[in-house]
Structure formats: C-alpha cells, structure tokens
Computed example of a mutant assay.
Amino acid sequence: MSRVAPFSLRLSADERQQLETQAGSMPLGSYIKSVVFASEAPTYRKRKKPPVAEQQLLAEVLVRIGQSRTANNLNQIAKHLNQGTLVVDEELERDLAEALLDVAWMRAKLMQALGTKP
C-alpha cells in the first residue's frame, strides 16, 4: 500500500506536551492515528453540498458576470471620474443604467441562492 503525503497539524506547546504524555511510549503519529481511527471516535456532521437549485442560481450569476462587461465599464468610468475627464452623455447614462440592472439582477439571484429575501 503506497502512502500519500504526510498530514500536518499545528499544535501549541501545551497541546503537543499533552499528546506526548497521553501517547506514553507509543510513537506520537501512531497514537494520534489510534485515537482518530478508533471505532468509538466521535463522528461529526458531514459537509453539506448546496442544493442543486442553489448551484444552478450561482452558476447563472457566474455566467452573467463572465458575459458582462459591467466590471470593466465601471472601472473605466471610475478612472475617467478620478482624472476629471468623465463626459456624461447618453451612452454613459445607458451604460450606467445597464450596470445597475446587472447588479440588481445578480443581487437578487445571490439572495435567492442563499435563501434570503430581498
């Protein structure tokens, strides 16, 4: 049986001393494995996978972000605003309105995926 890479565990000096005391003459790694893999070792809840519907909503948001130029457009607007070269015309107003709609849509979908109400 081949072994996988070692597992590292950070302990305080007191924790390490306690483990070494409990292990007695047994090698520390062997002692830890015997405790962790004991049949009476406590079991903890399993990690929950998000429900499929939530994953689909999150996927929709990621797709929309990937297709959208909103982040780049807002960055360019902020750059021109900071430089004092921002020209507010109909195109910019349309871009801002579209960005607001995108952000509102993403917010609603994320809240829906998280199970919260807007």
Rank of each mutant, 00 (worst) to 15 (best):
Q18L: 07
Q83C: 09
A113H: 07
S2F: 02
S12M: 08
L100D: 03
G24T: 02
T43W: 00
K46Y: 07
L110T: 13
F7K: 01
L92Q: 11
G24N: 04
I65D: 04
S68D: 01
A78K: 11
Q83I: 03
E91G: 02
M1E: 01
L9Q: 06
R69D: 15
Y31R: 04
K48F: 00
V36F: 10
P42V: 08
V52C: 09
W105C: 06
K48D: 13
Q67K: 05
A59H: 13
L110E: 12
N82E: 15
T116C: 06
A113G: 07
P50S: 15
A38H: 15
D95I: 03
D102Y: 08
S39C: 05
G29P: 07
D95S: 06
V87R: 13
T116A: 11
S30Q: 13
Q112S: 10
Q22M: 06
R107I: 07
V63K: 06
R3V: 01
Q55T: 14
A108E: 15
P42Y: 00
L86G: 15
E54C: 07
D102P: 01
L81Y: 15
L9R: 06
P51A: 10
D102S: 06
S25I: 10
L62N: 05
N75D: 06
V36S: 05
F37D: 11
R16C: 14
G24F: 09
E98A: 14
G115L: 05
V4K: 04
K117P: 00
S2N: 08
E98W: 00
L114I: 04
A23E: 00
E98I: 04
A113C: 05
T43V: 13
M111A: 08
N72M: 06
V4P: 00
L81K: 09
R69G: 10
D95F: 04
